[in-house]
Design a protein around this nucleic acid. Structure first.
Lengths: 134, 134
DNA sequence: CAGAATCCGGAACGATACTG
DNA sequence: CAGTATCGTTCCGGATTCTG
């Protein structure tokens, strides 16, 4: 399927193709709840409410949808124990674990440069909206 | 300002904090048009229409918004030449270039596993919606 | 050629309530 | 405790038009 194009500099061999794929994947795992859920699960299996509390600020519904999506993508497994108080555990699959590996550099970059970005935004905003300053 | 927490396994030192940051960054650069625009610019400076054609399927408006966002984040620079047919060039900043570096592993992962994900989705869908088969 | 402004349909998200 | 269903809102994204 993938043609045998030599990878020149990494991301831009034939942009049209690669961008689509990366875009498609990012479209799945790119939303913030997904990233956060995956991050929590990096630590090991966790129950629904545990994940919800760890993330904080996520609604019941959104976490459910997020986890269902991850399950569908084969990135996490869902294990329901038929106990009286229902208990469901989510865990990263092998594939999910390889993803977190890939995500780590991005996490580091985010942490390292997030303030720089913020600063750039402030500068830009200051230039664009001097009206707010009164 | 970041506390001197030892990074245990990479992404999960104190989830709440790190997830926020990564989530925030992903919220900015995570959408597909942004990723694609950055990918195109990895090749070097490019003009508006060039980027639009390279990406394909993006509307005038969305590309404008995307590029403005990137400019605001300090990831790309915008240079307008006051020629008769207006000509605007976009180029990655140094910060933008460090981001692409981080993105490369993710691109590889996407390429390597996108089919696996697709397959997992198909399996999952087949189990969930056997009704459509008729 | 590049961008701003406007309008509109649909998807995403949140809050709530009910089930097992 | 975990999940589903429904409803209302908000916001994103696309098509169009106009300007410099």
């Amino acid at each position: 399927m993938a043609s045998a194009k030599p990878s020149t500099s990494g991301i831009n061999p034939d942009r049209a193709d690669h961008c689509r794929v990366v875009g498609a994947v990012l479209d799945r795992i790119g939303d913030k709840w997904t990233i956060m859920a995956v991050s929590v699960l990096t630590d090991g299996p966790a129950r629904f409410t545990t994940i919800m509390r760890e993330i904080g600020g996520v609604t019941h519904r959104m976490l459910t949808l997020t986890l269902r999506g991850l399950e569908r993508d084969g990135l996490v497994t869902r294990t329901a124990y038929a106990t009286v108080p229902p208990r469901v555990e989510y865990e990263l699959t092998e594939l999910g674990r390889t993803l977190t590996t890939t995500l780590i550099p991005l996490a580091h970059w985010s942490e390292a440069n997030w303030q720089t970005i913020r600063a750039a935004q402030d500068q830009h905003d200051a230039r664009s909206e001097p009206a707010l300053a009164d």
